[in-house]
Amino acid sequence: MAFALKGVAYITGAGSGIGQYAAYSLARQGVRSFALLDRNPVTTTVFQLKTISPDISVKEIELDVAKEAAVNDSVTQTVKEFGRIDYAVNNAGIGGSIKTTDQIDWDDFERVLAVNTTGVWLCQRAQIRQMLKQEKRSNSERSYRGSIVNTASMYGTLGPSLNVPSTAYCTSKHAVVGLTRADAIAFAPRGIKINAICPGYVATPLVMNSMNQGDVMNNERAKVPLQRLATMEEIGDCIAFLSSEASSYMIGSSMVVDGGFTIQ
């Protein structure tokens, strides 16, 4: 895929997993300026980006997406460094407890929503406010003031398996899909493109570790028609597509990338 992306990317949860590989995919398509945000170090991501192209510039920002002031400041820092934000990827998230409603504690439920839902909303609000101040990168009708991709989940489109009763996670990701649709409608006429990606089971370090702890994830993998997990690169490439002008007529979509899990 070649989308010839130019501009500035802002990626939360960029220190590992999908956020990390979203950065790599955007870099391979031409992005050379990155704000990488995570609660943990992004050292590995920065190193790999430099191997893709030594002229890549990176602003590293430690960020808890559930903190309003910190989110607003991170956007301010990014714009001060690079002048604008063209591609935002709101990817930071947590899994929470694998429990049903009668088992889960209030604190645990609220913590998952604070990061996965409120955190996405806080980031998206700050990004929209900035994007409304900047012009499109070109006069093409396929160009936007900015593009936002929110990481939801296939469990933002259906209920969780009986084997994986992740009530809080499922609730939070359904909310991300709703937020994406609401804001996509509101801001498409104003030149901002907003979509969500809904990955299925992905071979992240966390998932691979859980597969070594018992049969649950192996049983879930067996339900995937492709009979394998997605690679992080595959999800990153889909995020790059949603960020690009190749997806210019996609507004408020929930792009499911699950190996066929949800169509059974």
Score class of each variant (00 low, 15 high):
Y21H: 13
A22Y: 01
A22C: 12
S25T: 02
G30D: 10
S33L: 11
A35T: 12
L36E: 04
L36F: 05
L37H: 01
T43M: 09
T44V: 10
T44Y: 06
Q48A: 12
L49W: 10
I52A: 04
D55G: 11
K59R: 15
K59L: 15
E60S: 14
D64K: 10
V65R: 12
A66Y: 02
A66F: 01
D73I: 06
E81W: 05
E81Y: 04
F82S: 02
I85R: 02
Y87E: 01
I94Q: 08
I94E: 10
K99R: 05
D105C: 06
V112P: 06
V115M: 09
V120A: 13
C123G: 12
E141F: 11
R142C: 14
S143E: 07
A152V: 05
S161Y: 05
V164F: 14
P165Q: 10
S166P: 15
A168F: 01
C170W: 05
K173R: 10
A175M: 11
G178R: 14
R190F: 07
K193T: 08
P199C: 06
M211E: 13
G214R: 01
D215Y: 11
N219Q: 15
V224A: 05
Q227D: 11
Q227N: 15
R228H: 11
T231C: 03
M232V: 00
G236F: 00
I239P: 00
S253T: 15
M255I: 09
V257S: 08
F261T: 07
Q264V: 07
